[in-house]
Write a protein that binds this DNA or RNA. Structure first.
Lengths: 336, 336
DNA sequence: ATGAAAGCGCTAACAT
DNA sequence: ATGTTAGCGCTTTCAT
């Protein structure tokens, strides 16, 4: 252990073979006699040899790293997808560099570094349509979009079945007897907000209910925006008996606004969210919500990505992951 | 763009210089005449040359990647520290591979891959004392422990000032007039649980209050464990008027148990948590808590790590980050 | 089944 | 200030 590090030639010398044979052994090539293999493996053990990833990347032109670009790493939905992706990547022998890029400039410089310098072999991009970032993704590099509806571009994608989610949430409220159902959406430039809204409209239509724009507002996913939305709505004469909030945080905001106005939830107002965020069952009342399978989303995104890296599969699968209604206490059958 | 990729020699040929000169230009070496530099840069532009990170790693023996090992990527505290670390790393020109290792076996294989194959130049390890994982960290590699009290090992560390946090939380309850103060801890094998407990005891002692083991229970950070803890406690004749929960999730569990028993919070029971998790202000009642500066923790951890990678600084700084009391509605002055 | 030679794309050491 | 020569540690031909 005097010099910097034992390399493949040290092992070769120690085992009395060529460095090439050592390479064959560590790469589990067939063409090595059991005898030689044994000798080499012994030498590897004795010297504590571990091949250098950089040298291997250099020689093979492959880094075994994928990049994951997300607006942030802290939102529960992002973090869960990232965790599942990372785990799945590792099962396939890849590492994952996850970076947050709240702004498009950050995103751009990340693309330059990761793709330009060939640090990564592929990209998982969360919320590509949040802003103009999708335009910055080079189309030579294998990529999967997560959380977006397929658009003109030819990129694999995985997303929650947002239309289905909006429809099922709204249907559920309708089944409970609600007729006046408000909705607070996410930012309408995001696909999922549009699709959840579309699902809401579908459910309304199939029940023969009128879509009423006055009952619909745009939020920004924050609890505060849910709170504001409902504070304004409450003054309206034709107030709703139920709210479909496009995520749990806004649902919580709505509930707070209702309580501040002495509306009991769910007795006077039913509220349903989307996500099933941590502690959703610990709010007051425990939240009824459409649960996302974030693990499946992350897992499938990476499977898609790796298959496109390794199999040269021709482009464009679009996966939709269904959500699941979780009934708790923030909704109930309409009374009176 | 016919062949695989333009390299430094292509650029050299195009600019009519040696590849070495190109190397000097892209490495911003001084020793290039403005004239030559300009020519080379033009060639780089024209050919769209971007240096390969792998080749550079190979030649320099540096990957500019650091690893971050965390029990998971989804807990709000971990995710926030990871996000801050990753951001800070990037400011220094490093990328970060963040991996979740719920089990020690996963941790072990990650160490082999990341450190053994020299993929990373250093390690940020979150919760190293959660189990035996700290024994698996090789001491040749620059490492920072996050969320642990310095022990025998000589490793840099950054952590919340857990003693101070426990003390301040308890002091605050005492100032409000509470005398019977219960506590639910995290798992007692974790340093931070021990230290927060020590802070609690200190505050009790300085107020001349008796430490009562019957009022103390061990949780696992989950809301459920807080709930269970308080359900049992409630039967006790000598019940408390306040609870110090060592994190917000357990605090929320305690509050639920109290409400189920028709104890009003904060009127009959004050509850304080630690973290200031997302939506802490949206629970019922809004949570009083000791807010962690998770950004500072992540940032300082990476600064420490990079200084130890680059400056060959001799080991062992131990940073403590203070927490901040955030008063909301789950605590109040004792009545009667 | 094994070895020799060449090269991956860059940087570093040593010329000039 | 620039070019030449060697590697970095591995994989990949191509021989044998």
């Amino acid at each position: 252990m005097s010099r910097s590090r034992v390399n493949i030639r040290d092992v070769a010398a120690h085992a009395g073979v060529s460095h090439q044979t050592v390479s064959r052994v560590i790469n589990e090539s067939e063409r090595v006699s059991p005898e030689t293999r044994r000798k080499v493996q012994a030498a590897i053990q004795e010297l504590g040899f571990v091949p250098s990833a950089a040298a291997r990347s250099m020689a093979r032109g492959r880094t075994l790293i994928i990049g994951c670009l997300s607006p942030n790493l802290t939102d529960y939905t992002f973090a869960s997808i990232i965790q599942a992706s990372e785990h799945q990547a590792r099962l396939h022998g890849y590492f994952m560099v996850s970076s947050s890029s709240p702004e498009v400039e950050t995103f751009s410089s990340l693309i330059n570094e990761l793709v330009g310098k060939r640090r990564v072999e592929g990209l998982v991009v969360l919320n590509p349509y949040e802003d103009e970032r999708h335009n910055l993704v080079p189309d030579q590099v294998p990529t999967v979009y997560v959380g977006s509806r397929p658009r003109q571009e030819e990129v694999d994608s995985v997303a929650l079945d947002d239309v289905g989610t909006g429809r099922d949430a709204t249907r559920y409220l309708i089944e409970l007897g609600h007729r006046n159902i408000a909705m607070i959406t996410g930012p309408m430039n995001e696909d999922c907000s549009q699709d959840r809204s579309n699902g809401y409209k579908e459910a309304l239509a199939e029940a023969g209910l009128q879509y009423n724009p006055k009952l619909v507002g745009e939020g920004d996913w924050s609890a505060t925006s849910g709170h504001e939305f409902f504070k304004e709505l409450i003054d309206d004469a034709n107030y709703p008996s139920a709210v479909f909030a496009q995520n749990d945080r806004m649902a919580v905001g709505v509930i707070r606004a209702a309580r501040e106005n002495n509306w009991k939830v769910p007795d006077k107002l039913s509220v349903i969210g989307v996500d099933d965020m941590p502690l959703a069952s610990y709010f007051h009342p425990p939240l009824t919500t459409m649960q996302q399978d974030l693990d499946a989303i992350g897992r499938k995104a990476v499977n898609l990505l790796i298959s496109s890296i390794e199999d040269e599969r021709s482009c464009c699968e679009h996966l939709l992951i269904p959500s699941k209604l979780v009934v708790r206490k923030s909704t109930c059958r309409i009374t009176g």
